[in-house]
């Protein structure tokens, strides 16, 4: 329909963090923050969440950040109030958690520095009901009106 697919799209080199040093790289500051958070995680197990929506990113900053962090082995998705996509980065312990609404518009984007992102963990209230629910299933009568567990 259009010629846009023929427009050469230039993509910043994705292999390394050094890449092209940007003049307004706020990504760099966040990377420093992540480094400190990692130190804390290793030392004391303290988890950190960084809300990237609150960062004054310029165009390209986010790409630079994600390129630098790379892609790890784990991908997960939570379907609740629209999808939430969890991606492990190439840096162990650093997770990208992308909260989207039903229209796939981003609600917020977090970087979590943790062993496992919080949203993947079963919630304590749900866990409290886990045995009952399993028992119910063993009885062959799934409890009605229970919130679906993410599959």
């Amino acid at each position: 329909m259009s010629g846009s697919d023929q427009i050469p799209v230039s993509i910043e080199s994705s292999a390394s963090c050094s890449g092209k040093p940007r003049d307004y790289g706020n990504a760099r500051a966040v990377l420093g923050q992540i480094r400190h958070a990692l130190e804390r995680l290793i030392a004391s197990g303290e988890e950190t969440r960084i809300d990237l929506n609150a960062m004054p990113f310029g165009p390209g900053d986010l790409e630079h950040l994600t390129n630098c962090l790379g892609t790890g082995e784990v991908q997960a998705s939570v379907e609740a109030l629209g999808p939430t996509r969890i991606q492990e980065t190439a840096i162990p312990g650093v997770w990208l958690v992308d909260y989207l609404n039903a229209e796939n518009q981003r609600l917020t984007l977090h970087i979590e520095i943790a062993n496992v992102p919080q949203i993947l963990c079963p919630q304590p209230q749900d866990l409290a009901l886990a045995i009952d629910r399993l028992d119910a299933r063993l009885d062959g009568t799934p409890a009605p009106n229970t919130p679906p567990l993410s599959s």
Binding site: S2, S4, I7, V9
Partner: peptide
Amino acid sequence: DLNSDSAINAKRFAEVLDIIQ
């Protein structure tokens, strides 16, 4: 400027087309 992050570039054009569609 197709080569600038800070201008209407190829990515922006693609977004525009998506919206029109």
